[in-house]
Protein backbone atom coordinates (compact mmCIF):
# COMPACT_ATOMS: atom_id res chain seq x y z
CA UNK A 1 0.00 0.00 0.00
CA UNK A 2 2.76 2.34 1.00
CA UNK A 3 4.31 2.28 -2.42
CA UNK A 4 1.38 3.51 -4.41
CA UNK A 5 0.63 6.38 -2.08
CA UNK A 6 2.98 9.30 -2.69
CA UNK A 7 3.66 12.10 -0.29
CA UNK A 8 1.76 14.64 -2.33
CA UNK A 9 -1.30 12.45 -2.74
CA UNK A 10 -1.27 11.76 1.02
CA UNK A 11 -1.16 15.51 1.53
CA UNK A 12 -4.06 16.14 -0.82
CA UNK A 13 -6.17 13.47 0.83
CA UNK A 14 -5.44 15.08 4.19
CA UNK A 15 -6.49 18.56 3.10
CA UNK A 16 -9.48 17.51 1.06
CA UNK A 17 -10.77 15.04 3.62
CA UNK A 18 -10.31 17.39 6.55
CA UNK A 19 -12.27 20.15 4.85
CA UNK A 20 -14.98 17.65 4.01
CA UNK A 21 -15.28 16.32 7.55
CA UNK A 22 -15.15 19.79 9.02
CA UNK A 23 -18.04 20.87 6.83
CA UNK A 24 -20.11 17.84 7.80
CA UNK A 25 -19.31 18.48 11.47
CA UNK A 26 -20.14 22.19 11.20
CA UNK A 27 -23.39 21.33 9.44
CA UNK A 28 -24.47 18.97 12.21
CA UNK A 29 -23.48 21.51 14.85
CA UNK A 30 -25.52 24.18 13.08
CA UNK A 31 -28.51 21.88 13.22
CA UNK A 32 -27.78 21.07 16.86
CA UNK A 33 -27.55 24.76 17.66
CA UNK A 34 -31.06 25.22 16.38
CA UNK A 35 -32.19 22.13 18.30
CA UNK A 36 -30.59 23.44 21.50
CA UNK A 37 -32.49 26.71 21.44
CA UNK A 38 -35.79 25.08 20.63
CA UNK A 39 -36.38 21.39 21.19
CA UNK A 40 -34.05 20.21 23.94
CA UNK A 41 -35.11 22.91 26.35
CA UNK A 42 -38.77 22.49 25.50
CA UNK A 43 -38.87 26.04 24.17
CA UNK A 44 -38.30 27.49 27.65
CA UNK A 45 -35.65 30.15 27.01
CA UNK A 46 -33.41 30.99 29.96
CA UNK A 47 -34.74 34.20 31.49
CA UNK A 48 -32.89 36.95 33.34
CA UNK A 49 -32.86 35.06 36.64
CA UNK A 50 -31.43 31.94 35.00
CA UNK A 51 -28.76 34.02 33.28
CA UNK A 52 -27.79 35.63 36.60
CA UNK A 53 -27.83 32.23 38.27
CA UNK A 54 -25.42 30.92 35.66
CA UNK A 55 -23.13 33.83 36.43
CA UNK A 56 -23.17 33.01 40.12
CA UNK A 57 -22.32 29.44 39.17
CA UNK A 58 -19.38 30.66 37.10
CA UNK A 59 -18.12 33.39 39.39
CA UNK A 60 -17.62 30.84 42.14
CA UNK A 61 -16.35 28.12 39.84
CA UNK A 62 -18.64 25.46 41.24
CA UNK A 63 -17.56 23.40 38.19
CA UNK A 64 -14.15 22.72 39.74
CA UNK A 65 -15.71 20.52 42.43
CA UNK A 66 -19.01 19.47 40.87
CA UNK A 67 -20.13 18.06 37.55
CA UNK A 68 -23.11 19.51 35.72
CA UNK A 69 -24.61 17.22 33.08
CA UNK A 70 -21.61 15.02 33.79
CA UNK A 71 -18.91 17.55 32.99
CA UNK A 72 -16.59 19.21 35.46
CA UNK A 73 -14.78 17.88 38.50
CA UNK A 74 -15.43 14.58 40.25
CA UNK A 75 -15.02 15.77 43.83
CA UNK A 76 -18.64 16.55 44.66
CA UNK A 77 -22.15 15.49 43.56
CA UNK A 78 -23.62 15.98 40.09
CA UNK A 79 -25.79 19.09 40.08
CA UNK A 80 -27.57 18.89 36.70
CA UNK A 81 -30.32 16.94 38.43
CA UNK A 82 -30.01 18.38 41.94
CA UNK A 83 -33.35 20.09 41.43
CA UNK A 84 -34.99 16.74 40.81
CA UNK A 85 -33.09 15.12 43.70
CA UNK A 86 -34.48 17.78 46.02
CA UNK A 87 -38.01 17.06 44.83
CA UNK A 88 -38.33 20.23 42.74
CA UNK A 89 -40.62 18.51 40.24
CA UNK A 90 -43.34 18.06 42.84
CA UNK A 91 -42.65 20.88 45.23
CA UNK A 92 -40.63 23.70 43.64
CA UNK A 93 -40.82 26.05 46.61
CA UNK A 94 -39.76 23.33 49.03
CA UNK A 95 -36.79 22.41 46.83
CA UNK A 96 -35.78 26.04 46.48
CA UNK A 97 -35.74 26.53 50.23
CA UNK A 98 -33.92 23.29 50.87
CA UNK A 99 -31.20 24.09 48.33
CA UNK A 100 -30.71 27.57 49.72
CA UNK A 101 -30.57 26.25 53.25
CA UNK A 102 -28.01 23.63 52.20
CA UNK A 103 -25.73 26.12 50.51
CA UNK A 104 -25.95 28.49 53.46
CA UNK A 105 -25.16 25.73 55.93
CA UNK A 106 -21.78 25.05 54.30
CA UNK A 107 -19.15 24.23 55.34
CA UNK A 108 -20.22 21.40 57.56
CA UNK A 109 -16.83 21.20 59.20
CA UNK A 110 -17.40 17.48 59.73
CA UNK A 111 -14.06 15.78 60.27
CA UNK A 112 -13.12 13.45 57.42
CA UNK A 113 -15.89 14.68 55.13
CA UNK A 114 -15.31 16.73 51.98
CA UNK A 115 -16.04 20.37 52.49
CA UNK A 116 -17.86 22.89 50.38
CA UNK A 117 -16.89 26.49 51.10
CA UNK A 118 -19.34 29.17 52.06
CA UNK A 119 -19.53 31.68 49.25
CA UNK A 120 -21.44 34.33 51.23
CA UNK A 121 -24.09 34.57 48.56
CA UNK A 122 -26.86 37.15 48.82
CA UNK A 123 -30.50 36.13 48.89
CA UNK A 124 -30.84 37.31 45.33
CA UNK A 125 -27.87 35.22 44.20
CA UNK A 126 -29.17 32.17 46.00
CA UNK A 127 -32.56 32.53 44.42
CA UNK A 128 -31.00 32.98 40.98
CA UNK A 129 -28.90 29.86 41.46
CA UNK A 130 -31.96 27.77 42.18
CA UNK A 131 -33.66 29.20 39.08
CA UNK A 132 -30.63 28.10 37.11
CA UNK A 133 -30.79 24.57 38.55
CA UNK A 134 -34.49 24.45 37.88
CA UNK A 135 -33.99 25.47 34.26
CA UNK A 136 -31.16 22.97 33.78
CA UNK A 137 -33.31 20.14 35.13
CA UNK A 138 -35.63 20.58 32.14
CA UNK A 139 -32.96 19.95 29.51
CA UNK A 140 -33.69 16.78 27.56
CA UNK A 141 -30.57 14.73 28.29
CA UNK A 142 -31.82 11.52 26.66
CA UNK A 143 -32.42 9.94 30.04
CA UNK A 144 -29.08 10.68 31.67
CA UNK A 145 -28.23 10.30 34.55
CA UNK A 146 -29.42 6.72 35.12
CA UNK A 147 -30.88 7.58 38.53
CA UNK A 148 -31.36 10.40 40.97
CA UNK A 149 -27.97 9.95 42.60
CA UNK A 150 -26.55 11.56 39.45
Amino acid sequence: MADRLTRSSARNIFYGGSVFFFLVFAGLVAHSHFYAISTSIGGVQPDEAVARGKHVWERNSCINCHTILGEGAYFAPELGNVWVRYGGRDDPEGAREALIAWIQAMPTGIEGRRQMPNFNLTDQELDDLTRFFEWVSNIDTLGWPPNEAG
Partner: peptide
Protein backbone atom coordinates in the same frame (compact mmCIF):
# COMPACT_ATOMS: atom_id res chain seq x y z
CA UNK B 1 0.13 13.13 6.35
CA UNK B 2 -1.58 9.78 6.72
CA UNK B 3 -1.56 10.09 10.50
CA UNK B 4 -2.89 13.62 10.67
CA UNK B 5 -5.52 12.71 8.10
CA UNK B 6 -6.66 9.89 10.39
CA UNK B 7 -6.73 12.31 13.31
CA UNK B 8 -8.97 14.87 11.72
CA UNK B 9 -11.20 12.46 9.81
CA UNK B 10 -12.06 10.72 13.07
CA UNK B 11 -11.59 13.53 15.58
CA UNK B 12 -13.86 16.19 14.09
CA UNK B 13 -17.03 14.10 14.12
CA UNK B 14 -15.65 12.25 17.15
CA UNK B 15 -16.51 15.39 19.12
CA UNK B 16 -19.92 13.74 19.19
CA UNK B 17 -18.80 11.55 22.12
CA UNK B 18 -19.25 14.65 24.28
CA UNK B 19 -22.67 15.44 22.81
CA UNK B 20 -24.51 12.41 24.19
CA UNK B 21 -26.10 13.74 27.39
CA UNK B 22 -25.97 17.52 27.26
CA UNK B 23 -29.22 18.19 25.48
CA UNK B 24 -28.28 17.64 21.85
CA UNK B 25 -30.00 15.51 19.17
Amino acid sequence: YVIVALSLFSGLLGTGHHYFWIGLP
